[in-house]
């Protein structure tokens, strides 16, 4: 147990400088943009006085490190500044959109695991046979397909066709309902976007699981188990599978970033009012505090989820506690 604690502390110590760096990048981004941030924020038509006023308000006249310290101090307290356009606190804007993005990301993860686990396992157990070849080709296509295009196709092929040919309108062409508001509608409305976003991840995880199972099947301990009469089912589903799936947990954790990033695009395709759409709208509105807040929040969430996954892996896989760096 002490090992786990040490391991967690080690990972935490790694996360702190990374988070500091990430916050600095989010902070400096606005300053690196060509031109005066205040001018950028107010637009070309603002008067010099307005710009000077905003510079004062934002503290842009102070030295950079003082500004950063202030930004960081506020961010830690949950204050990410105010939107230039709506004047609402950035934190409130983000929190209002967050449930949609979370619903999409979680559903995508579920979809991708639901596809990847059975196909990956089956592919490995039937290596070289038809099931294996088909699932590998499909996986390759899945990795090669841009998710937003898949989203468009799903809208055309599933939503439009079902609606126009059979009068089934369960999949909305646009928008998403939260499961907390209406569970049934919520699930149906998230299915197509989740499939669009989850397919590439599914393909990736499937490949990993297939490779992992193939690796494990050839380990000596499998022969030992066989030599001691342990049933093939127990060998496959208890011994091999556990060991094969554990390392993929880390990969899935790393791909949470893909899910968050990908949701920006998928939200645009399906018109989902999540963080991604907020980000895109803010970009076109040149609403930099909002963009800054989203970038910082997403980086923090990403680092935190990686940390969580690492710790989870460390607890589940006894080998890691001794391994150290290869985690």
């Amino acid at each position: 147990m002490n090992d786990i604690l040490q391991y967690i502390i080690k990972r935490l110590l790694w996360a702190v400088p990374v988070l500091l760096g990430a916050s600095f990048v989010a902070f400096i981004m606005v300053h690196l943009a060509p031109g005066d941030p205040a001018r950028l924020m107010l637009g070309e038509r603002a008067s010099a006085a307005q710009v000077a006023q905003l510079r004062m308000e934002l503290g842009l006249n102070k030295p950079l490190y003082v500004q950063y310290a202030g930004f960081l101090g506020d961010a830690i307290q949950g204050d990410l500044g105010r939107s230039i356009r709506s004047q609402q606190p950035v934190t409130d804007l983000i929190v209002g959109r967050l449930p949609y993005t979370i619903q999409l990301a979680v559903a995508s993860l579920v979809v991708s695991l639901a596809i990847a686990l059975p196909t990956g396992i089956l592919g490995a157990l039937r290596k070289g046979r038809l099931t294996d070849h088909v699932s590998r080709v499909v996986a390759l296509l899945g990795i090669s397909m841009p998710n937003f295009w898949l989203g468009l196709i799903l809208i055309v092929v599933v939503a439009v066709e079902l609606s126009s040919r059979f009068g089934i309108d369960v999949f909305p062409l646009f928008g998403m309902t939260l499961v907390t508001e209406d569970p049934v509608e919520g699930i149906f409305s998230v299915m197509l976007p989740a499939f669009a976003l989850g397919t590439a991840l599914a393909a990736l995880v499937m490949r990993m699981i297939r490779g992992g199972v193939l690796d494990e099947i050839n380990q000596s301990y499998v022969r030992t188990a066989r030599a001691y009469g342990i049933s093939e089912d127990e060998i496959t589903y208890v011994y091999v599978l556990k060991n094969a799936i554990l390392p993929t947990i880390t990969v899935v954790g790393l791909q949470l970033g893909y899910l968050i990033g990908g949701s920006v695009i998928i939200e645009t395709v399906f018109g989902i009012p999540g963080i991604g759409q907020l980000a895109i709208n803010s970009i076109f509105a040149q609403d930099f505090p909002v963009i800054q807040g989203i970038v910082l929040l997403v980086a923090a969430a990403f680092v935190a989820s990686n940390l969580f996954v690492d710790v989870l892996y460390g607890m589940l896989d006894p080998r890691i506690r001794y391994g150290g760096e290869n985690a």
Binding site: G21, V25, G257, Y258, G261, V264, A279
Partner: peptide, 9 residues
């Protein structure tokens, strides 16, 4: 620590 597409965006 930034999701790649988000960083690019």
């Amino acid at each position: 620590s930034f999701p790649s597409i988000l960083l690019a965006i």
